[in-house]
Design a protein around this nucleic acid. Structure first.
Lengths: 215, 215
DNA sequence: CGGGCGGTTGAGGTCAATCAATCAGAGTGG
DNA sequence: CCACTCTGATTGATTGACCTCAACCGCCCG
């Protein structure tokens, strides 16, 4: 689940959108402020993106105003490729961030590129299935524990994990409310499993215990 | 939910499945009795499958014995392709069923086949995301309503929908208990939204209302 | 007729949602 | 430098949805 930055840099200018690699232009760098929309559900999908810095969330909105966050994208992560012409999710900046946008090409696909996209899709598919398992069968404590471990692994954090997103973001990712997120974190702190030096920092004091909760 | 951008990983993971010949691949027809295992989590992934008749479920088991069903596969559906070498889910026959197994080949990759796999993966990804939304944010009534509509659409059913799977299967698919599934169906029947001529048959008497619940 | 299995129904408990108040920190203006 | 405000986070009290435990029903099959 770790992110490979070296390989990302190498591949940076040769990832067409199901198109030929030959005349593919470099992607354009874009910056977004916190909570700014990158694209919305229903938009035409003309590009895919790679996160350079900051954090991005992909999400869907329900008619009652609630929100389900599909994924948090960290530096190195790729997002925004679609099998159809339209966006199925919205993408927004969690923090101020910069991304590289790669334009979709209409040229004939080559199999190396399609193979890469297949691999991306499968990776996301497996992660989304894992997320389903958590949403369908996990208690609040299990959800928070899994989330903290996920963040720790993805940021290669030793013990102190930075949380770039708000409690509301975490709640919408885990299918909880902000109150439950907050309460669960507080409860874990009282039990000595974690420490909360600030709202956006978590120290994993007993990571083994957190991992056991996930089984 | 990060995607590693490592090119090496992409090669390694996607290549095994890119070898299917352009000519119609030879598949062997297999039959399974109800509840029989087709493959288990952790097995080597040597084939992918297409459902000919009957219904298949893909699922994972938790340490406490509970189960999360990832998907129900109906005739025509393809399942069992993996990005790695191992099965990440188990597959079992819901009813007695027949499937065609296509062995993975080492032949030269083929554009069309690779593109198909990408399309399959994206389709499943979108369905799984939809499922996440339901599991994370839906009430019992919403889950059951969405499930009934899904089954109706997938079987092209007019009004009477056959349910090939048990209440336990439905519960494990929706992240509920059998009691809640049963109660919710009964409640919908009392309200006149559906009728239950038998346990495995549902008549959608007010499909519009069911669809509204989903929004 | 009796047993077994899947499904339904009921009573009571639990966990997370809801409603509501308080707190903490960052930014602003006097 | 200190109120003041605004927003995000925390905590408390209560409610309610779903789970759990348990009994019962209905159908199939011997």
């Amino acid at each position: 689940m770790s992110v490979s930055f070296a390989a990302a840099a190498v591949q940076q200018h040769s990832m067409p959108w199901l198109g030929t690699a030959a005349a593919e232009p470099a992607g354009s760098v874009l910056s977004f402020a916190a909570d700014q929309r990158i694209y919305a559900e229903g938009d035409a999908a003309r590009s895919y993106y790679k996160v350079v810095s900051g954090v991005v969330r992909t999400c869907r909105f329900l008619s009652d105003g609630r929100r389900q966050i599909d994924a948090f994208l960290l530096p190195g992560d790729v997002f925004g490729f679609e099998s159809g012409t339209d966006r199925r999710l919205s993408a927004e900046a969690v923090s101020s961030c910069t991304v590289i946008a790669y334009r979709r090409s209409t040229a004939i696909p080559d199999d190396h590129t399609v193979g890469q996209f297949f691999a991306f899709a499968m990776t996301y598919l497996e992660q989304t299935r894992e997320h389903c398992l958590l949403l369908g069968r996990g208690s609040a404590v299990q959800k928070i524990a899994a989330f903290l471990i996920e963040m720790a692994e993805r940021t290669d954090a030793a013990a102190t994990v930075g949380l770039p997103m708000s409690r509301q973001d975490i709640a919408d990712y885990l299918g909880l409310t902000i109150e439950t997120v907050s309460r669960t974190l507080s409860q874990m702190e009282r039990q000595g499993t974690i420490a909360l030096p600030s709202a956006r920092k978590v120290v994993l004091k007993n990571r083994h215990l957190l991992e056991e909760l996930n089984t």
